[in-house]
């Protein structure tokens, strides 16, 4: 757990219920979690801190998850990005984001799968 405290995770989702509970689960396993309610807020947080893992909902107001990925592409060193969506990730999107996205998760993400995925990302 102590190791996890040093891992900074950003959870960006416009749905407060999902965002809060996801953050709570990750905090419960020790991560230091920041929340963002839309793409613009996520980018502002990314400007302020160097995150290890970023969980991005695809559909968000202001800037969506894809735009966030495209904007932060020049950041160095880049955080490990995971995309979350209620819809299927179609082949074109996967291809487009192939270089930057570590994992695609489909909503609702089972908590165990979430913890495991973030754990994998944090170890990269």
């Amino acid at each position: 757990m102590n190791e996890n405290v040093r891992i900074l995770v950003l959870v960006a989702d416009d749905n407060a219920g999902i965002r809060d509970t996801t953050a709570a689960i990750l905090r419960a396993v020790g991560y230091t979690v920041t929340e963002a309610s839309d793409g613009q807020a996520a980018l502002e947080e990314i400007d302020k801190k160097r995150f290890d893992v970023v969980l991005l909902d695809v559909q968000m107001p202001r800037q969506d998850g894809i735009a966030v990925v495209e904007t932060m592409i020049d950041d160095a060193p880049p955080p490990v990005i995971m995309m979350v969506s209620a819809y299927d990730f179609d082949t074109d999107l996967r291809h487009h984001l192939n270089q930057r996205v570590f994992k695609y998760l489909k909503k609702p993400v089972p908590p165990k799968e979430l913890i495991e995925a973030v754990g994998q990302a944090a170890r990269l």
Binding site: G17, I18, T22, A24, I25, A28, Y87, P108, P111
Partner: peptide, 20 residues
């Protein structure tokens, strides 16, 4: 179906937190 995913996802998360 889509709109229910978020509350259901939240419920699943909360259930996990409660169990923890």
């Amino acid at each position: 179906g889509h709109e229910l995913r978020n509350p259901l996802g939240a419920a699943i998360n909360l259930l996990f937190l409660a169990r923890t």
